[in-house]
Design a protein around this nucleic acid. Structure first.
Lengths: 295, 295
DNA sequence: ACAAAAGTGTTCCAAGTACACCCATGG
DNA sequence: CCATGGGTGTACTTGGAACACTTTTGT
């Protein structure tokens, strides 16, 4: 039986431990929900287009009342943090299959005008066909917003042992009738051999809290991870054509590939099926994910 | 002036907002501090060896009294989360240069027997020569532990549309006279095209809370990031020989390279100096980090 | 027949891997 | 002079990038 400096056993210590001795911040989780929307082309002879979308909910109370926010809420005292994220996800959509990962924990002072809130953000990637929005279960209005990012300005200060890169990007989120906008400044500083990076919102419109930063951070994470993981497949149905897969890569990376190069890039990650999907032209072979691609 | 459903303006709402309506978890930060130790070889003709080390502190109160833990503490109500991590770092070491990044936020119930604690872990990489331990400023005893991981067991269940990989690893942390051990089970599940992974501690000795999991998670993050970032250089002084750099890569990745292949791998990341470091043999050229390697 | 999309082949270059080899130093 | 480590060259393979080309379909 080990005693502490106050001469208490562990049982005694725990019995008198007062968790409320110090003031505590509030803790919330936010779930960034991304999906790919398929936009059928009116001209049947042309291929359907795709867009990246994010799910936002409209705030029905102060602060930022009427503006749009990433779905989220406070963490219950008796639920795991990850479970809180899954709960938030299920409150928005009835999903059978999801990819979900923890993104980042945001803990700056003043990010919420109500009180000190530390918020852990998660990112979920879903296939829009295999899920439906929980229509009006809550009072909240949830909508899918098309995601666009434009680089506004890029600037680099290069000195002998430091490089400071600043980039201003504009994040534009749109539904048919609603637009949210934000300008975010990303600063990457290399001093000697140490790199640090920072995100700041320099202006925003119709989007709540620091959520523009979170969305941008999620987009960058996707962009990184699509290069060395299989997250792209979470955004597609079980079976897909190579053209669809290519579009997903192009949308997330914001660049285009040529067909042969792309197909060799992802060759090992897919398996042929003997099914075909007929368009107005030569039918495309359907492929499925090869879970053993890494071996 | 927008009113909410209760007819309040934003000012009115904020004035009556009660952050303590619901019980809140405690929030802490932990800072995993890694460094490379140089172990001079008694035989002057042989090269100095290197080891990866992690800094742990001895707990001086319940729970886990006397056992070892990652340095950390509760987040102040008036400090940013990142600042809290930097404060914890400075409480342990006087460092001029560090690489620090947020790792993960751990929020399972029961991870701390005192109360519900959600903990954000950071990972810092330092060069041991350019910092000194804050000797006895606090009552806490801090020590550098050699880090070793051994794979105990690896098992894969492969079915048509799922693969479950389970790996049991043993984490051994050692100083001259202290040893901490833990066995961790890592489960990676691929069902259809969705991957999830999970860490569990299956047994532990002399190491507190779920900290073994955090250390293992940090090691895996380093292993990933050393492949596509320049974090290795944070662990070395400004000028270093290629053999030193190679050892750092080998220690973190747990595998060896041949000299010519390694040198081509990192060719673009380093710049020659005209300095040499004389050993008992042909002097080795010193190199420095090339901050423009990515361009 | 032709537009639109599916799908293949060829060449070039960069990077990883596996070798074999020479150079410099001090004990 | 030789053990030990520093440093270089060559050949093979793999994966990405650029480009030109054939095939299949519905309208």
């Amino acid at each position: 039986m080990i005693l502490n400096k106050q001469g208490q056993t562990e049982e005694e210590f725990l019995a008198v431990y007062n968790p409320d001795e110090f003031e505590k911040p509030s803790v919330s989780v936010d779930v960034l929900l991304f999906a790919i929307a398929t936009i059928e082309n009116p001209d049947v002879r042309k291929l359907a287009d795709k867009k990246l979308q994010v799910l936002l909910v409209q705030r029905d109370n102060h602060p930022y009342i009427g503006q749009w926010a990433i779905p989220g809420g406070f963490v219950g005292m008796n639920e795991n943090l990850n479970d809180a994220a899954l709960r938030e996800l299920r409150e928005e959509t009835a999903v059978d299959n999801v990819y979900i990962e923890q993104l980042y924990t945001w803990g700056d002072l003043g990010r919420d005008p109500r009180t000190r809130v530390i918020s852990t953000s998660y990112m979920a990637l879903i296939n829009k066909n295999s899920c439906r929005l929980q229509a009006g279960t809550d009072v909240v209005d949830a909508r899918w917003f098309d995601v666009n990012i434009n680089i506004i300005e890029e600037d680099e200060k290069n000195e002998a042992d430091s490089t400071i890169t600043q980039k201003v990007v504009e994040l534009v989120l749109k539904t048919q009738d609603i637009t949210c906008k934000a300008r975010i400044k990303e600063t990457i500083t290399i001093i000697n051999r140490f790199t640090t990076s920072k995100l700041e919102i320099i202006e925003q419109d119709n989007i709540s809290f620091d959520h523009a930063k979170i969305i941008y951070y999620g987009l960058m994470r996707m962009r990184n991870k699509i290069e060395y993981t299989d997250i792209a497949f979470s955004l597609l149905p079980n079976e897909f054509t190579l053209a669809e897969l290519q579009l997903v890569y192009e949308i997330i990376l914001g660049k285009t590939f040529t067909k042969p190069n792309f197909q060799r890039k992802i060759r090992n990650m897919v398996l042929e099926t003997d099914k075909f999907e007929g368009g107005a032209h030569r039918p495309a072979r359907l492929f499925r994910f090869n879970k053993d691609w890494g071996k």
